[in-house]
Nucleic acid binder design. Sequence first.
DNA 1: CCGTGCCAAATTGTATACAAAATAATGATC
DNA 2: GATCATTATTTTGTATACAATTTGGCACGG
Lengths: 230, 230
Amino acid sequence: MDALKTVKTTARPIRRSTLHHSAVAELRAMILDGELPPGVRVPEVQLCEQLGISRTPLREALRVLSSEGLVELRPHRGAIVAPVDPNEIAAIFEVMDALERLAGTLACKNGLDTEFAKLDRMHDQLVAQHEAGERAAYFLTNRQIHAQIVAMARNPALEATYGGFATKILRARSLANYDAGRWQESVDEHEVFMTALRRRDAEEFGALLADHSRRTAVAVIQALQPVRAP
Amino acid sequence: MDALKTVKTTARPIRRSTLHHSAVAELRAMILDGELPPGVRVPEVQLCEQLGISRTPLREALRVLSSEGLVELRPHRGAIVAPVDPNEIAAIFEVMDALERLAGTLACKNGLDTEFAKLDRMHDQLVAQHEAGERAAYFLTNRQIHAQIVAMARNPALEATYGGFATKILRARSLANYDAGRWQESVDEHEVFMTALRRRDAEEFGALLADHSRRTAVAVIQALQPVRAP
DNA sequence: CCGTGCCAAATTGTATACAAAATAATGATC
DNA sequence: GATCATTATTTTGTATACAATTTGGCACGG
């Protein structure tokens, strides 16, 4: 048929050849891993030789991360890794609840059968990892499940916004000692909203997801308090 | 009057001394005003002499606008003003509906009495401008009303996200010939949700705002179609 | 006449050099 | 001895120069 065009824009074959692009990825990872803790100044030259690049691409990367909210730029005074403000996290979760609800509703409506099946498998894996006490693996699967739900919503704007908030929340989580008691609760909630998902009950699924998000918020923020007791 | 300072700090006394910061503002305005239409290539050197700056701050500005979604960066192939894709706008509105609902609900809960009164005054102004047929002024007031509602929600994350989407929607609106018949309808909807607001009925107000957003979406997307008829 | 390969021009990506501002460090004065 | 002013150092902001990649054109061969 149309074998004319082999162009095949395969979504993103774009090679990340540019240094500032890799620098963004690298710095973001460093911030998320806690290698660059919140509040620390980020001397440009030092990071330059650490990453083996020049100041130009590094500065471009810092500007991007700034507009993502991961670093703060003070004119003529250098950049600092954005501090994790519990109030800001609370605000983010407030929006996140709404996004989760929307994602759940849309996912029910727009998801493919294969995707629903995949979610089921991921959920089984999640439960298994919980029972096995594999904390790190559990968190990864958990994130993947929510990412999958968002992907099934078929809404790029939602996906991007969700991803940005998820990044910040992830950083807050890694800083706070997540309450162990919340773990079982969280798994239970997963169990419940999965039943709604299997019924393809869009409204209910969305509502349960929002609820799950809200409870997670409470736990995370509570775990965050000791760090910044007033 | 206040002839002392025309600075007009608006919550941010930070002097925009850096060139790349002003470049971001300048370019964003140029894109929103349609001076840089969607899809056009953006030769760096040309813009440089046009803005009277060097390539370094300009490139930093382009990276920021890229992460805002206003320009697209193709590695080694230059930057283009992001095209306005009706599908993307539809997706954005889908999220926007949820944000409007959230904003409305929170505004009812967290708004101050003086702010509610201010909204009332703005609404009166809106109606007057509609009756006077002052289209441009009406649109401005309309935006200000929604911005005020969002501000009353007391949620910076919501405000930032809302603002980003509003920018893109604004650009889509300016491109499309907004349907005249929708005007009266829109005013009527404002009238309705203002009554819910005066009752401080958070849920109802949020629902009506979301509804208003959804109807606006339909009108804007419809007006956008002729541009990209297949 | 059309396709392929190579070369040249233009444009982007990166590095470095210079200018301006902020922080520190020092010394003078009270 | 402490505080303020002034200077020196460091760090950021900007400009320019150089390297790498893409794009358009041209010649050559089919």
